[in-house]
């Protein structure tokens, strides 16, 4: 039950884009049509769901102060948290590379549609942001962490697909010249974010 409410919360209330602006670069660059937006959304969710639990395990059994206690009592005071950023980003980057190679080898069709996004994902703030929030929020177990990663990914996908849909329709409207393109996209993002804020009152 907790996991479900966590998923809903991370999709609507603490949406990666609308509440924290994570992953904005690719959000703005790849939201011109719905199909590619969906592809990127799926790729982000996929990588997030796979890397966040790995980082959760690393955080709780290697990096955190006292996390190495399972090796023996004498390691109880070891605190490796200074390396956490380095390890997280290394996990994400190598994972993205791995996924890219696996997909390329076994499913060229999927690679053709998803492949171009994968290099973009290593530096997508939403992925690293997910891991850093996981570190800060101290989830009770790996199930909760996975639920959170899934919710965040879906929330990100929802945002980018919605944005792309609006931008497709926007073709036909008269936007003041200096606002064309980037400017109006920012304003729409802000308005969508305001809309999403109305979810923050709900009690889940």
């Amino acid at each position: 039950m907790d996991a479900i409410s966590l998923i809903i919360r991370s999709i609507f209330v603490d949406n990666m884009i609308f509440a924290y602006f994570l992953g904005m670069c690719s959000f703005l660059a790849v939201s011109k049509n719905v199909k590619t937006a969906l592809g990127l959304g799926i790729a982000v969710t996929f990588v997030l769901v796979l890397t966040l639990p790995i980082n959760y395990l690393l955080e709780n059994y290697v990096l955190k102060a006292g996390a190495l206690v399972w090796l023996g009592e004498q390691y109880a005071t070891v605190d490796l948290s200074v390396f956490s950023l380095l390890i997280f980003i290394a996990v994400i980057a190598s994972f993205v590379q791995l996924v890219e190679m696996v997909i390329e080898r076994f499913s060229p069709a999927l690679y053709a549609s998803l492949g171009i996004f994968l290099p973009l994902i290593a530096v997508n703030c939403a992925i690293l942001g997910g891991s850093l929030f996981m570190q800060q929020r101290e989830f009770a177990n790996i199930g909760m962490a996975t639920a959170y990663s899934f919710g965040s990914g879906i929330g990100w996908m929802l945002a980018i697909v919605g944005m792309a849909a609006i931008r497709e329709k926007l073709e036909y409207s008269h936007v003041p010249k200096p606002l064309k393109g980037l400017g109006i996209t920012f304003i729409i993002t802000a308005l969508m974010a305001l809309g999403f804020m109305s979810f923050s009152g709900i009690n889940i």
Partner: peptide, 10 residues
């Protein structure tokens, strides 16, 4: 609120 940052950039 967060959205206003985006609006200001716009």
């Amino acid at each position: 609120l967060a959205p206003m940052a985006i609006l200001l950039v716009a």
